[in-house]
Design a protein around this nucleic acid. Structure first.
Length: 887
RNA sequence: GCGCUGUUAGCUCAGUUGGUUAGAGUAUCACCUUGACAUGGUGGGGGUCGCAGAUUCGAUUUCUGCACAGCGCACCA
């Protein structure tokens, strides 16, 4: 026949995935224009790091987004998926510095300008890698609009936001205690610090009173910081220390006199109840220092070594210093004891170094006023988290937010638009670069050396990518975006900042839904990580199994907000599904001969199986659409899987074969079968397309269709009139009976394919007619021939196995081969089950509370169950007696 | 310390307003290469839904407590 017949026997994604992606892109099927008469649906991609490469988390995140995007696009929405990547300040700079290190130089050897040239070159080299990997996954992003967080537009947006917040007094510069990473050599924000429990020590040290003898004993986990102590705190109501409050103590080693004071912060139960206070190196001490006007003495420098303030310990490493200090305290006789002590220590979330809290001059965003509208937007439901539970985490965090340290001592990033005049000391924050002091006209002006936290620009992503601060058509049409899809691990980093910035500058929420997913873990449930080496490269999976397989694997069994384990056998399962669909379609194509595309069957042409599959298909459409609306993508995928495999393939195709194989092609029965099969298959491919875009396109192109791509086909809807409960009832009875007969045949080891006769007794007259007219089902699917439909008075066949399901009793005569004992035992077991069922239903129905309070439909259902069970019991008992007589 | 999530078949997980004898994938056992597919088909075995209470006619589902596992936040110097 046609070339279709030569379609590969086995699903091989390599043969068509690249081809279709280019086809889509060449035909600009991903592109969206802001057209005001259309309903928009938009998503901005969580921008991956510019020098990163696709990992499993990206693969899942983008699969979920692409499913939503493709589905809404088919539904007719004006659909935009905005792609792009993030400059990722620290991460990228660290990578380039690492490559410099291999050349034996540091960024300081190059200088800022040359170094940045290297980073931009690096960005050019690797920047497109992840974007092409996203393409291989099938992501239908509008690549014509691709953005970068440091492109011209984003840079302008960053400046505008910074200056505007500064002018509103919401950005300020101050000398405060911040988290300092000695390795990355920069300040970092609170959420970039991971607290880990570590085994340490609690050193008890005696600080002698300056006058009158005696001492106060303090406990510390960080003895080296004592060099910077400027006070000792106790609780105001602590009797033990009532007399020492207000007195001075002499700091050992240093000899400095420092005050003992009272502060509510101190926990009387902990340690000795007396705390050494180092305002320059501990956040709580810093706060106490502010309250009590204590001096800040910075003894640990930015590089993690001791400063000149540390006297003889200057330039010593902080941990080496700790050892030496302890030794010296011991020799001075003021170290009274050392306890084992478990405590939590902050680590840099990037490099895992121990964080050093220290005082430095940084830029901050004042968060309290900005946080309020962001909380309100979620509280009042303008923004909805999916699943809902994450809104609580979000709100709770925002309610306790502290100011955000936004300056980073890096070179790669948005440089802070602040200038300092050396002539008059003025600080100028400006949208444009300046070289003259607007106040004194001086030329000795220098820009702030620092750059902004990466998340500062990411926070503007939803509106900066739409052209803000200009009032663009994109902004008006696609903003607020419809949904944000991301992992729960960056709610604080990113989601919160976008909402804050969106409300403040985008003048609206940035998105209506936040669809949160979990992490992809390895087969042991561990986080995939570089250090463990347990990561699985999605590109490798795509190479081996195809993008559709990977996507389907990532979405099936995926529940919103929950983690997903990666199993190769789940990959194989998804691949097998693709192969199943492939072959079902191939079957269809092999049987299209003589099919006239213009043929439309009329009501009478549809057979029972046609009506049944169309009904099942209609219900599938409803289920899939509903689940997608609820972001239950895994459930939606499962529903399609089940329909295709368990209904379309297992039953419909098998039932319809005789009609397709019929010699006299061109008759209505055969053409109707072709029509229904083509219809259901083509529409099911549409349902599946958002999940498996490539295979569905490839197959769709082989089938009779309209339009250039399945991408542009309409999402199925309005199928409710095809729901046919009567057909479903009949088919269910038939399928149950076929299964029962297969079961009996397997039980006695009947040779597959060898026909055996069967007798069927039905209480329902309608069903009796249906069964009688569909003997061929039983012949082809249960190897029954001939089949007798028994009349009411007929005696049960004697040497026969019996199966009862619903109101149908099937007998499988065995002509003397029956093992009476075995069969009796089997029936006895079945009888036990049915007795239990009767007992259960009877008890339920005798319970007046039940019959009175349960809904009538439930009671009726229960009654029917009981009657059916009783009928079945009657049949079973009759059979058992018959068997007894034979023995 | 506060909070969240999970606990369902050997394994991994679904189970959407409380209502048949609780499902799937995978693994396992038996049989079958039949003219879409062995990446397949047919059939079987396998679960007192973590424990204890409460509400209800009825709880895997709602509530409370507990246990175990995991996570987040805060943090004791």
């Amino acid at each position: 026949m046609t070339e279709e017949k030569n379609i590969a026997k086995v699903y091989d994604p390599k043969l068509f995935e690249k081809k279709w992606y280019s086809f889509w892109e060449d035909n600009r099927l991903f592109h969206a224009e802001a057209e005001e008469d259309k309903t928009p649906f938009s998503i901005v991609i969580p921008p991956p790091n510019v020098t990163g490469q696709l990992h499993m988390g990206h693969a899942m995140d983008n699969t979920l987004q692409d499913i939503l995007i493709r589905w809404r696009r088919m539904q007719g929405y004006n659909t935009l998926w905005m792609p792009g990547c993030d400059h990722a300040g620290i991460a990228t700079q660290a990578k380039v510095e690492e490559s410099l290190r291999k050349e034996g130089i540091s960024r300081y050897d190059l200088g800022r300008e040359k170094f940045l040239e290297r980073v931009w070159a690096w960005k050019e080299k690797f920047g497109n890698r992840i974007m092409s990997q996203l393409r291989s996954l099938g992501s239908s992003c509008d690549w014509e609009r691709q953005r970068f967080t440091m492109d011209e537009g984003c840079s302008r947006a960053v400046r505008e936001v910074f200056v505007s917040l500064y002018e509103k007094g919401l950005i300020y510069r101050g000398t405060r205690i911040t988290n300092w990473c000695p390795h990355c050599n920069t300040a970092i924000s609170d959420i970039e610090v991971d607290h880990k429990t570590e085994q340490g020590h609690l050193w008890h040290i005696r600080y002698p009173l300056a006058e009158g003898g005696g001492y106060i004993e303090i406990a510390t986990t960080r003895p080296e910081t004592m060099l910077g102590d400027t006070g000792v705190a106790v609780h105001p109501e602590d009797e033990r220390y009532r007399d020492v409050v207000g007195k001075m103590v002499v700091l050992p080693i240093v000899g400095r006199k420092i005050p003992v004071f009272a502060d509510e912060y101190v926990d009387r139960e902990f340690g000795t109840g007396a705390v050494k206070v180092t305002p320059a190196h501990d956040p709580n001490d810093y706060d106490m220092g502010e309250r009590h006007n204590l001096e800040q003495i910075k003894v640990i420098g930015n590089d993690g070594t001791m400063t000149d303030e540390a006297g003889k310990y200057a330039s010593m490493d902080r941990y080496e210093c700790r050892k030496k200090i302890v030794e010296e305290l011991k020799s001075l006789g003021v170290l009274s004891s050392i306890e084992e002590h478990e405590h939590s220590v902050g680590h840099c979330s990037r490099c895992n170094s121990t964080i050093e809290p220290l005082v430095s001059e940084q830029w901050f965003v004042k968060m309290d006023t900005l946080a309020k509208p962001a909380i309100e937007a979620v509280r009042d439901g303008r923004i909805q988290f999916v699943p809902e539970r994450f809104s609580k985490i979000y709100i709770n965090w925002l309610e306790n937010i502290r100011d955000w340290c936004i300056s980073r001592q890096l070179w790669w990033g948005h440089r802070i638009p602040a200038w300092y005049c050396d002539d008059c000391g003025e600080t100028i924050v400006s949208r444009d670069d300046i070289d003259t002091c607007p106040k004194c006209g001086g030329k000795h002006i220098r820009q702030d050396e620092d750059v902004l936290d990466t998340w500062f620009s990411s926070g503007l992503w939803p509106f900066a990518t739409m052209g803000w601060p200009d009032d663009t058509r994109e902004l008006r049409h696609f903003y607020p975006t419809s949904v944000l899809v991301t992992g729960y691990d960056i709610i604080f980093f990113w989601v919160v900042r976008m909402v804050v910035m969106g409300l403040e500058f985008g003048k609206d929420i940035p998105f209506r839904h936040v669809f949160i997913h979990g992490l992809v873990r390895d087969d042991q449930g561990r986080k995939m990580s570089k250090s463990l080496g347990n990561g699985i490269d999605p590109v490798e999976v795509i190479d081996k199994y195809g993008a559709d397989t990977l996507r389907f694997m990532l979405v099936t069994g995926n529940t919103p907000g929950n983690d997903l384990r990666f199993y190769w056998n789940r990959v194989e399962s998804a691949r097998n599904f693709a192969n199943k669909l492939w072959n079902a379609s191939r079957f269809m194509m092999m049987n299209l001969e003589g099919f006239d595309g213009s043929f439309v069957p009329c009501g009478d042409d549809f057979t029972l199986e046609d009506r049944w599959i169309l009904s099942r298909y209609a219900k599938t459409v409803e289920g899939v659409t509903e689940n997608l609306e609820k972001f239950e993508l895994g459930e939606a995928a499962r529903a399609i899987y089940e329909f295709i495999w368990s209904e379309l393939c297992d039953w419909y195709i098998e039932l319809v074969k005789p009609r397709l194989y019929a010699k006299d092609g061109g008759d209505a029965s055969r053409m109707t079968a072709q029509y229904v099969l083509a219809y259901v298959l083509e529409h099911t491919l549409r349902l599946l397309h958002p999940f498996m875009p490539f295979i569905t396109e490839e197959l769709w192109q082989h089938l009779p269709h309209e339009g250039i791509s399945i991408m542009a086909a309409e999402w199925p809807s309005g199928e409710a009139n095809r729901i046919d409960e009567d057909a479903e009832r009949c088919m269910t009875a038939i399928m149950d009976t076929i299964k029962a007969i297969r079961n009996m045949r397997a039980e006695v080891g009947a040779q597959p394919g060898k026909k055996s006769e069967a007798a069927i007794s039905l209480s329902d007259e309608t069903l009796r007619d249906v069964f009688a007219s569909h003997e061929i089902y039983f012949k082809n699917l249960a190897d029954v021939e001939p089949m007798t439909i028994m009349n009411d008075g007929d005696e049960h066949p004697r040497n026969a196995l019996t199966a009862v399901s619903g109101g149908v009793t099937s007998y499988l005569p065995l002509k003397g081969l029956i093992d009476v004992e075995k069969e009796s035992a089997r029936l006895k077991k079945e009888l036990e089950n049915i007795e239990n069922e009767i007992k259960r239903t009877t008890a339920k129905l005798n319970n007046e509370n039940f019959t009175a309070k349960a809904p009538a439909a439930v009671v009726e259902k229960e009654k029917a169950k009981k009657e059916e069970a009783e009928a079945k019991r009657g049949t079973l008992i009759a059979r058992m007696e018959q068997l007894k007589a034979m023995a």
